[in-house]
Structures are given as C-alpha cells and as structure tokens.
Design a protein around this nucleic acid. Sequence first.
DNA 1: AAAGTTATCAACCGCCTATAT
DNA 2: CATATAGGCGGTTGATAACTT
Length: 230
Amino acid sequence: MGRSPCCEKAHTNKGAWTKEEDERLIAHIRVHGEGRWRSLPKAAGLLRCGKSCRLRWINYLRPDLKRGNFTEEEDELIIKLHSLLGNKWSLIAARLPGRTDNEIKNYWNTHIRRKLLGRGLDPTTHRPINERASNTTTISFGRREEKSSDVLGHKEERSSSEESSAWQQQQRLKCPDLNLELCIAPPFQQEPVVEPVKRKGNLCFSCSLGLQKSEECRCDRFLGLSTEYY
DNA sequence: AAAGTTATCAACCGCCTATAT
DNA sequence: CATATAGGCGGTTGATAACTT
C-alpha cells in the first residue's frame, strides 16, 4: 500500500499546455480565484491534475510575473539570499517580486552557478574553492594503482616487482572499483549580518506572523537585507 | 547541410507539512 | 489523538532550441 495518487492519472493530460488549456485556466481563476486546486480541473473543464494547474498558474500564467532577463541587481540579490537561505527557492522568490521559485531555481542552476564558479566560489558554500585544499581533510577509499604501497608503508617490504604486483592484486580484490572521496570541512562561519536580537526587532508584527508580503507589512529589512532592491 | 553536443526551462514526481475531519 | 487530504516545495527529467564540429 503506497501513498494514494494526487489525482486520477488515467484521464489527465500531461506535458506542455495548449493555448486553450491556458485560457480555460485563466478564465476559471478570474471568476473563482486561486485555491481548491484539486477540484479546479473538473470545475474548469480541464483534463489536468490539480497540481499541474497550480504550477502552470504560479509559474507561467499569473499576471504579476515579470518575465524577461534577470538584472544584475537581481543576480546579486539571489546570490546574497542563497548564501543565507540555501536552496529555499520559495523564500528567495518571495524577495523577488514577479519571479517564481521555479524560475529562480532554473536560473541558479544554469547561470549563477557558473558565475560563482567563474569567481572561484563554491556555489553551495559560497566559499572560495581553493579554501577547500587548506581547510578540508580528504579521505579516499579507492585503489591506487601505483602509489598505494608507499602510502601504507609497504614499499620497503616489497622485495621484487612480482611480489608487489601480487600485493596490488590482493588489494584490488578487497576494494574492487571502489573510488569514493569524502571531504570533511569545518562548518561555514558566516559573518552575522545583524545581531539576532536586532533582527527580530526589525520584523513588524505581520512579518513575525510569517506574512512578509502582506499590506500590513511595515518592515524595511528582511534577514538583514535592505529592500531597496525593489 | 547534417550530426552531435550543450544549454535552457517548463513540467513532473514524490515527499513533507498544515489543516480538516 | 489518529487519519485523510490538499497544498507547497525542492529535485529531477525531458523536449527542444541553440550552438559546435
């Protein structure tokens, strides 16, 4: 017994949306508003999964979507937010009006990741890549064709090349094709942007309730970042 | 011009959480 | 409190456009 499917898969369309499907979805949401995604397809006369409708609306049809290329300011804001939040794309998207989490996620994977690598920064940790060599310990589990003997102190023990190759053969049998590398690094120490107490104080009541984008919001900062970007 | 490779991005999948019953 | 359901999220896939050989 697995988890029940979110909708009836047998009678639902998949893949790219047609113009007609888009129009039906838009017309339905204009009249009934967002929400009740599970029942929406039937009500709107769509042969789609509710989740698919929600995704199509949020990522593509919503009228407030910005579209177009990301600006340099948006790039830097995404990088800054990612260094603070990690892969929390929905939280990052919440700070970029008109952009969706899916769009930002795709943009990160295709552009920003490379941009950071070009700057010599690890896109995951936001730390310099060459820092890895000095601050990390690498443990390798693997067979080393030529040098395994000297590392483990077997070099002197080998009296002939024949004996050496027999020992290597033995090691191969113990670790067939195993070539794993584990890297251990100290946790990333990010300079706190603001003091925690102060940060809390900067959140207005609606934000403290998790309503960052509400009309009642009186915050001018979020996670220590000025909202001057937009 | 054709074939092969790479980049892009819309859409799907499955898991998790919040809420309703 | 336990269970069911809906919504939301992040990771991944697949189609296709763009580019290279």
